[in-house]
């Protein structure tokens, strides 16, 4: 049994951890998170693969380290309903609706209908004051988007950590909206190949 060689992309968890920490110091770092949003989609649309999930997802690596290496995970099976299509697509839709809501809030600040709020909303409910992480310098709408986007990133990390503790380390992957989205894109894009494979294996 050979030990697998480490590649540069096995260290992307450092990027994910740094991202979460930087958001405590300056909220504008939230914009870096857009990389984790567009890269997987681009890889799925252009390359037709889930190479991002498979090799480059820093968050997945972070959960692996916390759950496996540090032994924080209970390593129990995830409840059946979480891996059902209904839950996965339901969560994806919920996530997208909340994302659009965040964009709308940004628009309201942009149009001047609402003031920019220096809060990070956790689990779409709890508003945590986050004043220390912003000292001005950007347009109000630009800052509002940063607060909103960081809220989403932190919320999903919290959910991921909870399921990491309760179930398997990378349980987040089962209902990760990005994962569901890229898998759907791949399934549509490669439908011919999938059909051929299924017919061959019959």
């Amino acid at each position: 049994m050979k030990k697998q060689k480490k590649h540069w992309n096995d260290y992307l968890y450092i990027f994910s951890a740094a991202y979460l920490i930087l958001g405590f110091f300056n909220i504008l770092f939230a914009y870096l998170g857009l990389i984790c949003f567009f890269t997987p989609l681009a890889v799925a649309v252009i390359g037709g693969s889930k190479a991002y999930c498979n090799r480059y997802c820093g968050r997945g690596q972070l959960f692996s380290i916390l759950g496996d290496k540090l032994g924080l995970s209970a390593k129990k099976d995830v409840p059946k309903f979480i891996k059902s299509k209904y839950f996965r697509y339901g969560f994806l839709i919920f996530f997208l609706v909340m994302f659009i809501n965040m964009l709308f809030n940004t628009y309201l600040v942009f149009s001047g209908a609402r003031d920019m709020k220096e809060v990070v909303t956790l689990l779409w409910t709890f508003k945590a004051p986050w004043k220390w992480a912003y000292s001005g310098g950007a347009a109000p709408a630009v800052a509002q988007f940063a607060f909103g986007f960081y809220s989403i990133m932190l919320t999903s990390t919290i959910l991921g950590i909870i399921t990491m503790l309760l179930f398997k380390p990378r349980s987040w992957c089962v209902y990760c909206p990005m994962g569901t989205m890229t898998q759907t894109v791949c399934a549509i894009r490669n439908r011919g190949k999938i059909k051929a494979y299924e017919e061959n294996s019959k």
Binding site: K50, N54, G60, S64, R88, V174, G179
Partner: peptide, 11 residues
């Protein structure tokens, strides 16, 4: 049917 193609198994 229930595989999420995360790639943990590959690793």
């Amino acid at each position: 049917k229930h595989c999420v193609s995360c790639g943990c198994c590959v690793k």
